[in-house]
């Protein structure tokens, strides 16, 4: 079982850490070197972690557990206006990023009002591309009662935050006391609310991880990421930050779908091609490439049936 961590420390001798991670069978997910500072996120088998900790101590750096690493989370707000957006949403997104997640902030085009609030099919598809959606609603219980309906039927694990308490919603995680406040959270009592949101997201992800582990993919997504980076020439020149973003059960490759999808399907991973172990889709976000890992049973049955078909054709020729 792999666990995710972040190393914060000096850039001097950071290559030793990377080498050790790779020797232990782990993967470096991202590496940011800013002058003398290095921030490296990586995943390693859990039993080998003490060895990394020893090296990190020797290098004078800190190791932080980042449970949300390798996930993509949508932070959804009714609109992108100042009435809904700046402070609480940025706080939520920042706290999720501290946990290692990639966050995308999504404002609905017609999410304002109580009776008039709407969500379009395109927005729905866009939110459902993510692993978890965090929806930040407002202050009044009565308004939330009516407005919450447009989000509840999203086909994605949902965390809803709003001010009213006590308040119960079925079918999602609800975090109270997080209303439409006009300031950034600073006090310890306030930061606790953000921690609650982060742990609610973690619970949703763990639930999803358990589902995936019932029939896991052939290789974890970060292995596919590593191979794409090595085998696809265009992947080396992606200008977007975090060129290949990890999702819980797949990847988002920030390359144009029409140009690069064929090259990515041909990448070889553990004896298979990406086309065999993943389904490929066009993202609603900037035409990116979305890869979803197929479960192991599906890949193996497909492999066996092709082998049988090959055998039959060979026998026919004989």
């Amino acid at each position: 079982m792999y666990s995710n961590y972040t190393f914060d420390g000096g850039s001097y001798r950071h290559k030793e850490l990377i080498e050790l991670v790779e020797d232990l069978g782990g993967y470096v997910i991202s590496k940011y070197i800013l002058s003398n500072e290095a921030t490296i996120t990586f995943t390693v088998p859990s039993p080998d972690m003490p060895r990394i900790e020893v090296l990190a101590k020797e290098l004078g750096g800190k190791i932080k557990n980042t449970p949300l690493l390798g996930t993509e989370i949508a932070v959804v707000t009714p609109t992108l206006t100042r009435h809904h957006l700046p402070h609480p949403l940025c706080d939520i997104a920042e706290f999720l990023r501290r946990g290692g997640a990639n966050t995308n902030m999504i404002g609905l085009a017609r999410g304002t009002g109580r009776r008039t609030a709407q969500i379009s099919q395109r927005e729905r598809d866009l939110i459902e591309e993510h692993d978890v959606a965090v929806v930040a609603l407002g202050n009044f219980k009565r308004c939330i009662d009516e407005k919450i309906g447009i989000f509840l039927d999203l086909n994605v694990p949902l965390v809803i935050s709003a001010l009213p308490y006590p308040y119960e919603v079925s079918g999602c995680e609800y975090v109270p006391r997080m209303g439409k406040f006009p300031y950034k959270f600073k006090q310890i009592g306030e930061l606790k609310i953000l921690d609650e949101i982060s742990s609610a997201v973690e619970r949703c992800l763990n639930h999803r991880r358990e589902e995936i582990m019932l029939d896991p993919p052939v290789v974890p997504p970060f292995v596919v990421k590593d191979e794409i980076e090595q085998q696809v020439e265009e992947a080396k020149y992606i200008m977007s930050p975090g060129g290949i973003a990890l999702r819980l059960n797949g990847l988002r490759v920030k390359l144009p779908f029409d140009v690069c999808s064929d090259a990515i399907l041909q990448v070889r991973v553990a004896g298979f091609t990406v086309g065999e172990i993943c389904t490929i889709e066009r993202s609603r976000l900037h035409n990116h490439i979305l890869l979803d890992m197929r479960p192991r049973s599906m890949v193996e049955s497909a492999f066996e049936s092709t082998m049988q078909a090959e055998k039959i054709s060979v026998l026919g020729e004989v």
């Binding site: 202050n139 009044f140 001010l163 009213p164 209303g179 439409k180 406040f181 006009p182």
Partner: peptide
């Protein structure tokens, strides 16, 4: 407002906008 919690949040919002 009948929802006092929401009204309090609105009061904070108003005070903050005036200060800004």
């Amino acid at each position: 407002s009948e929802d006092e919690l929401g009204a309090l949040a609105m009061k904070l919002l108003t005070e903050d906008v005036i200060t800004n």
